[in-house]
Simulated scan of single mutants.
Amino acid sequence: MQEESEEEPKLKYERLSNGVTEILQKDAASCMTVHDKFLALGTHYGKVYLLDVQGNITQKFDVVSM
């Protein structure tokens, strides 16, 4: 019997910088979702950031609970 060796899938990634570095110096990420054209990052302090795929902040929202 001949064994087939399967090659592990390779993950391609790039480290996010720019606005993400700035955000994570002051706050911690609590959730994130990814789209082909943007990222949405939520933080523990209740802020939601929309970022482009390079990590630049395009919009910022403050979520206020009452």
Results as ranks from 00 to 15, higher is better:
1 M>E: 07
2 Q>D: 12
3 E>T: 12
4 E>V: 12
4 E>M: 10
6 E>D: 02
7 E>K: 07
11 L>D: 10
11 L>W: 09
12 K>W: 05
13 Y>I: 03
14 E>T: 01
15 R>Y: 00
16 L>H: 03
17 S>F: 05
17 S>H: 02
18 N>T: 09
18 N>E: 14
18 N>D: 15
19 G>M: 07
19 G>Y: 02
20 V>K: 01
20 V>C: 05
20 V>S: 01
21 T>N: 11
22 E>M: 11
23 I>G: 00
23 I>W: 02
24 L>D: 01
24 L>E: 15
24 L>Y: 00
24 L>M: 14
26 K>S: 12
28 A>K: 15
28 A>R: 15
30 S>I: 15
31 C>G: 09
31 C>Y: 11
31 C>K: 10
31 C>H: 12
32 M>T: 01
32 M>L: 13
32 M>W: 00
33 T>G: 04
34 V>A: 11
34 V>S: 10
36 D>H: 09
36 D>R: 14
36 D>Q: 07
36 D>P: 14
37 K>V: 11
38 F>V: 14
38 F>G: 03
40 A>W: 10
40 A>D: 10
42 G>R: 01
44 H>L: 13
44 H>C: 05
45 Y>M: 08
45 Y>L: 13
45 Y>E: 14
45 Y>D: 14
47 K>A: 09
47 K>I: 02
47 K>W: 07
48 V>N: 03
48 V>C: 05
50 L>R: 14
51 L>H: 01
51 L>G: 05
51 L>Q: 03
51 L>D: 03
52 D>F: 00
52 D>V: 02
54 Q>R: 10
56 N>E: 02
56 N>C: 06
56 N>I: 04
56 N>G: 06
58 T>A: 08
59 Q>G: 07
59 Q>M: 07
60 K>F: 01
60 K>I: 12
61 F>T: 03
62 D>E: 13
62 D>S: 11
62 D>R: 12
63 V>Q: 13
64 V>P: 03
65 S>Q: 07
65 S>W: 10
66 M>C: 06
66 M>Y: 09
